[in-house]
Measured scan of single mutants.
Amino acid sequence: ITGDVSAANKDAIRKQMDAAASKGDVETYRKLKAKLKGIR
């Protein structure tokens, strides 16, 4: 179950990262990237 949750989280975070990148929001992008590392 835990694996599914983190996989879903990663997917959601990647989508947020894409949105931040397209807006040029480097700050948010970095925060999300750090979150991704924390999940692993």
Results as ranks from 00 to 15, higher is better:
1 I>C: 15
1 I>A: 09
2 T>A: 10
2 T>H: 11
3 G>L: 08
3 G>C: 15
3 G>M: 10
4 D>A: 11
4 D>G: 09
4 D>T: 09
5 V>W: 09
5 V>F: 11
5 V>T: 09
6 S>K: 10
6 S>Q: 10
7 A>L: 10
7 A>P: 08
7 A>G: 09
7 A>R: 12
8 A>D: 12
8 A>V: 09
9 N>C: 15
10 K>Y: 15
11 D>Q: 10
11 D>S: 10
12 A>I: 09
12 A>T: 13
12 A>Q: 10
13 I>K: 01
13 I>L: 08
13 I>V: 04
13 I>Q: 02
13 I>H: 02
14 R>W: 04
14 R>P: 02
15 K>E: 06
15 K>R: 11
15 K>M: 07
15 K>S: 05
16 Q>P: 01
17 M>N: 01
17 M>T: 01
17 M>L: 04
17 M>Q: 01
17 M>D: 01
18 D>K: 14
18 D>L: 15
19 A>G: 02
19 A>M: 11
20 A>W: 00
20 A>F: 01
20 A>E: 00
21 A>H: 06
21 A>L: 15
21 A>T: 03
21 A>F: 14
21 A>D: 03
22 S>A: 14
22 S>T: 08
22 S>K: 14
23 K>H: 05
23 K>P: 00
23 K>T: 06
24 G>M: 05
24 G>S: 03
24 G>V: 03
25 D>N: 00
25 D>I: 00
26 V>T: 12
26 V>K: 13
26 V>C: 15
27 E>R: 05
27 E>P: 05
27 E>F: 00
27 E>M: 02
28 T>I: 04
28 T>L: 14
28 T>M: 09
29 Y>V: 13
29 Y>Q: 07
29 Y>N: 12
29 Y>H: 09
29 Y>R: 06
29 Y>P: 04
30 R>N: 14
30 R>P: 13
30 R>I: 11
30 R>T: 06
30 R>F: 06
30 R>G: 03
31 K>I: 04
31 K>W: 02
32 L>T: 02
32 L>K: 02
32 L>Q: 01
33 K>H: 07
33 K>L: 15
33 K>Y: 07
34 A>F: 00
34 A>G: 03
34 A>M: 06
34 A>S: 05
34 A>P: 00
35 K>D: 02
35 K>I: 15
36 L>T: 02
36 L>K: 02
36 L>I: 04
36 L>Q: 02
37 K>R: 12
37 K>E: 15
37 K>F: 01
37 K>T: 08
37 K>S: 11
38 G>R: 11
39 I>G: 06
39 I>H: 06
39 I>D: 06
39 I>E: 06
39 I>V: 07
40 R>K: 11
40 R>I: 14
40 R>N: 13
